[in-house]
Design a protein around this nucleic acid. Structure first.
Lengths: 200, 200
DNA sequence: AACAAAGTTGACGCCTGCGTCACTTTCTGG
DNA sequence: CCAGAAAGTGACGCAGGCGTCAACTTTGTT
């Protein structure tokens, strides 16, 4: 038995290759856009051969799916955790936005990927990108309404407005140097607390 | 001279061919996405020959550019006109959103095109799509602030938030059957009037 | 050390797109 | 009605992507 690492050499290279493909693919999808990117473009971004690619993924679509899946799981977990921990309305709104904005700042590559390919992602996997985020926010809003923490309103529209504003403002924030998460959180929180006040 | 129409036959077919290419291209860009679309795909959507395409456009990029240009001119003109006509803060906010939402409802093809290819459009012609809209809104907001019609605030972030929310809410509205422009306008207006109140 | 299983490699055949250009068709002005 | 100009046509040569597979290399096992 090798003492090198926990897992055997085989398993390790497998993980490394998969990661290499995903990383290269992310780069390529950002630079060329998903549609214009070819499997060869991805392969060229690794030191693997063409055939090897197909040992890991059946086609470029599944690579995008894997990428999107990882991102979605991470982002939604963070945001949801922040919202669950909140005790006040302000905490709920600010916490959710803060978690999301921090994620953006930590991972600019992901931001770029989503930004460039949002349309493709939306139509290809009916709406898991923003869609899932809006859906979850809607549920959280409805829960908050039932608990009396938020005045009643059209949660559908509110969720769309909050996610839409969050995405757009988040992109603007990331472009600034340096990005000021707290200031941005304060701004968006103000906007939506104002909205809740006026609606309730 | 022909009596058929004002212009000669030559000129008329020219306009018709150009329009046919544009229409086919819009369809193709919606269905396949810009990146995956080929000039041949566009040509197949018309009854023209390959070579003819190149009499009208040098490549597929200029077709997208032409499409985007038309849309942008139209949409921004409408929104700006509505805002210019406004005398109150509420009129300013509601009018802008109403003009934009009405445009979306009138032209679902355009919505689909923008939705699918927003990322490409953004990166390809540095931001004329949403970017120009945000830019104009920012200017209008600053003007309104100077005129004392709106309390002072970060117009950059506010413009991003309003456009982001407007786009996302607008897409949700268009999916509903039938789309209810006035209700959606009322909602978004409420949100941002609340925001202005709280910020000012 | 020797062998089988697992994994990697890249050349191969097929297909489709690109932009061009010699040729044909259509229009227009005289 | 005709001649020349304008526009339309599609086959052509080139380029590059796709997914495969037989040969090779690496790893784990006995």
């Amino acid at each position: 038995m090798g003492l090198k690492t926990a897992a055997g050499r085989r398993e390790r290279t497998k993980a490394a290759n998969r990661a290499a493909i995903l990383t290269a693919a992310r780069r390529v999808f950002i630079d060329l856009g998903y549609g214009a990117a070819s499997v060869r473009d991805i392969v060229r971004g690794t030191d693997l051969a063409t055939g090897t690619f197909y040992n890991y993924f059946p086609d470029k679509e599944s690579v995008l799916a894997a990428l999107v899946d990882e991102i979605g799981v991470e982002a939604r977990a963070r945001v949801r955790a922040a919202r669950m921990a909140a005790t006040t309305l302000e905490g709920f709104v600010a916490g959710g936005f803060r978690a999301y904005f921090e994620f953006l700042v930590e991972d600019p590559e992901t931001v770029a990927l989503m930004r460039r390919n949002a349309g493709t992602i939306r139509t290809k996997f009916d709406e898991p990108a923003l869609g899932a985020g809006i859906e979850e926010l809607r549920e959280d809003l409805e829960t908050a309404v039932r608990a009396g923490r938020v005045p009643p309103h059209d949660a559908d529209l509110m969720a769309a407005a909050m996610v839409g504003a969050g995405v757009e403002v988040g992109l603007l924030m990331v472009e600034r140097d340096p990005p000021d998460v707290e200031r941005t959180v304060a701004f968006v929180t103000n906007v939506f607390l104002g909205a809740f006040e006026r609606i309730g």
